[in-house]
Amino acid sequence: MGGGGEGPAWRDSLPYYYCVKFALSASSTLFSTAGLVIFCVGVYAEVERQKHRTLEGLFLAPAVILILLGITIFAVSFIGMVGSLRDNRTLLKTFFWVLLAIFITELLLLFVEIIFEKQMNAVFHSSIQDGIRHYYDDLDFKNILDYVQQKFSCCGGDEFRDWHVNRYHSCNGSGPLACGVPYTCCIRKAPGEVINTLCGYRTLNQERLELVNTIHVRGCIHAVSFWFKDNFEATLGIVCSLFLPWHARPEETMTECSLR
C-alpha cells in the first residue's frame, strides 16, 4: 500500500519535472550562446577602438559594456544550463539567487533614477555633452548617438541646442554644419525616406515651435526615460514570469525526480 501511495505523486511530478528541465535547459543554452556572441563582439569592438581611440571613459567605451554584459549573461546562463542538465541542486539554487539579485538590483536602480531624477539627468547630460563635443572624433559614440536619436526620435542630451558645444555645429562656426544639427535629428515624413544630410541646417538659432515639423526638439535623456517608464509594466511582467516556475522550488522537484 505504501508503494501505491507514492505512485500518483510520482506520476504527477514527472511531467512537471521534464517541462521545467527542458524549459530551463533550452533558455539557459540560448542565453549562454547569446552571451558568448555579445562577449566576442565586445572584444572585437574594443580591439578596434584601441587602435583609433580618441576619448576616455567607460561611458564613451560601449565595447567595454558589451564585454561585461556578455560575461555576465554567459556565466549566469551557464550555471543554469549545467544545473538543469545535471540536476544539481546547488547550481540551481545559485542560478535562482543570482537572477533574484539582478532583478532586485534593477528595481533599486529604477527607484534611484526616479527619486534622484534631476541629479541623474545632470550626470547623463554632462556625459552626452562631452560626447557631442567630440562627436566626429569618436566613431563609437557617433554611431550610438545616431542610433538613439533615430530610434527614440530625439536630438541631443537635454534638448537639441546641446549641439552648440560641437565646434562644427556651433553658430560661431563658418562651415555648412554651422548652427545646425545632424541629419539623425530630422523628422522623417515617411518610412524609408531618404533624408537630406543638411536637413538640420540653421536650426539652432530658431525657436522650438518653428522646428516641430523639421527636427526632433526633445532631448534623448527625456525620450529614453519616458520609454523606460512606458515599458516598465511590461518589462516587470516578463521578469516576474521568469520566477513563476520557482514557486514550487523546482530545484527540489528536479533532484527528487532524478533520484527516483
Rank of each mutant, 00 (worst) to 15 (best):
P182R: 07
W246V: 00
N231Q: 11
H169Y: 15
P245G: 02
H216S: 12
V217W: 09
A234R: 05
E193G: 02
H216W: 10
S225V: 10
R167D: 11
V217A: 14
K189T: 12
R218P: 00
C199R: 06
W163M: 07
R167L: 06
F228T: 00
C220A: 10
S170M: 04
T235V: 10
L244K: 05
R208F: 02
F243H: 00
T184N: 11
V217D: 11
H169W: 13
C199M: 08
V194I: 14
T214I: 15
P191T: 00
S241P: 02
Y168G: 06
W227C: 05
D162P: 07
T235I: 12
R218I: 14
H169L: 08
T235H: 02
W163V: 01
A178T: 15
L244W: 01
V181P: 08
N166E: 06
G200K: 05
N231A: 03
W163I: 00
C179I: 03
F232D: 01
C199A: 13
G192M: 06
R161S: 14
L177T: 03
I187Y: 00
A223Q: 13
I215M: 14
E159G: 13
A190H: 13
H222Q: 15
F228C: 09
T214F: 07
C185Q: 11
D158Y: 07
W163D: 13
R202Y: 10
A234S: 07
G237I: 01
L177S: 10
T203A: 12
E207G: 11
T214G: 06
T235Q: 01
C185I: 10
T214C: 08
H216N: 15
F160A: 07
C179M: 08
L242W: 02
P176Q: 12
H169D: 11
C240M: 12
N166K: 02
S170F: 02
A234E: 05
P245W: 02
Y168P: 00
V194D: 12
R167K: 09
A234W: 00
E193T: 07
V212P: 02
N213Y: 05
A178M: 04
C171L: 04
T184D: 10
W163K: 11
A234V: 09
N231M: 03
T197C: 09
C179R: 09
Y183E: 13
H247A: 03
A234G: 02
I221M: 05
I187V: 14
L242V: 06
T203V: 15
S225W: 14
T184L: 05
F226A: 15
Y168F: 12
N213A: 15
V224Q: 06
C220D: 06
V217F: 08
H169M: 13
C186G: 12
P191N: 07
P191C: 02
I238G: 13
H247N: 01
R167M: 05
P176R: 08
C240S: 10
A190L: 08
G237Y: 01
L244N: 01
A190E: 15
D158Q: 11
S241V: 05
Y183W: 06
A178Q: 09
G173R: 04
D162Q: 04
Y201M: 08
R167V: 04
E233I: 09
L211D: 05
N231G: 07
E159M: 07
S241K: 03
I187D: 00
G237V: 00
I215K: 14
E210F: 03
I238F: 09
W227A: 13
